[in-house]
Design a binder for these strands. Structure first.
Length: 256
DNA sequence: ATGGTCGGCAACCGA
């Protein structure tokens, strides 16, 4: 089973990139973040034509998450629970009885901002969501744009960036708590090389060329599922060479 | 304390 994730930064602006990549890679599941589209305008038909089911929740201009799957999805959950109205950052669906949680973690703006407190609060609610609903002894996937680089080798300049948004001790504490609950960073299970980035800030001039990257897009799995992982790859799409910006695809392969 | 840029959407917001 192949599972991909991609912060698409508008599914309508990058529909062709996504469809082409799906043709090339043929993932069983693809999780998208920042779809930036209200549900009524989500391109269901385009994915249907490629024999993918889709579940999604979005809004105008901001946020939005979607899961595309070759197989039907069950137990779809929008937001943290059925009473959660602001649900455009997390969506869960089970595929072959394996729950897939797709998140677009709040970016956090700046460590001294209210948005940063909200990011940390959101991560705490996410912890509660996992702890209340799921069991780390069962197969479970958590994928998406976490907006956090976990370790020094996951950012281009750890000394300079320590304490900045995306590489902050308070974020790391929250991430560690989630990891301790029962997640494995499946990418790092298979790859120990530095400079494996999934994101370059397009406000930085020539960020890709200058290797100013971050690994903030992740595929995490509970132990029983991580044990079945074969490999995880970062796919630097061709367009990054032409237009140095944005996120990469990340794809993991599991047995069966 | 976030901007040199994007995307959405129509003046700026969020990343």
């Amino acid at each position: 089973m192949k599972v991909g994730t991609f912060n698409v930064n508008s599914i309508r602006a990058r529909l062709k990139i996504v469809l082409d990549w799906m043709k090339k890679e043929s993932p069983d599941v693809l999780c998208l973040q920042e779809t930036k589209v209200p549900d009524k305008d989500f391109p269901v038909k385009a994915f249907e034509d490629m024999n993918y089911y889709s579940v999604f929740r979005g809004e105008k201009a901001y946020n939005g998450v979607a899961i595309l799957s070759k197989l039907p999805m069950e137990d779809v959950k929008i937001g943290f629970d059925e009473y959660e109205s602001e649900g455009t950052r997390i969506i869960t669906a089970s595929i072959k009885k394996i729950p897939v949680v797709n998140t677009y973690v709040p970016q956090g703006f700046h460590p001294l901002s209210e948005e940063f407190r909200e990011k940390l609060d959101w991560l705490q609610r996410l912890y509660c969501y996992f702890a209340e609903i799921f069991d780390p002894k069962q197969p479970l996937l958590w994928v998406g744009d976490f907006n956090i680089a976990p370790a020094p080798m996951d950012v281009y300049d750890p000394k300079f960036l320590l304490g900045q948004v995306g590489y902050h001790p308070d974020e790391h504490a929250n991430l560690q708590r989630l990891k301790d609950w029962g997640f494995v960073d499946v990418f790092r299970l298979h790859n120990h090389e530095p400079e494996q980035y999934t994101f370059w800030d397009y406000r930085e001039r020539n960020a890709v060329k200058r290797r100013m990257g971050w690994r903030i897009d992740h595929i995490w799995a509970t132990r029983p599922l991580a044990e079945k992982s074969i490999g995880v790859w970062i796919d630097i799409d061709q367009r990054l060479k032409e237009k140095p910006s944005d996120h990469t695809f990340v794809i993991a392969e599991f047995e069966k």
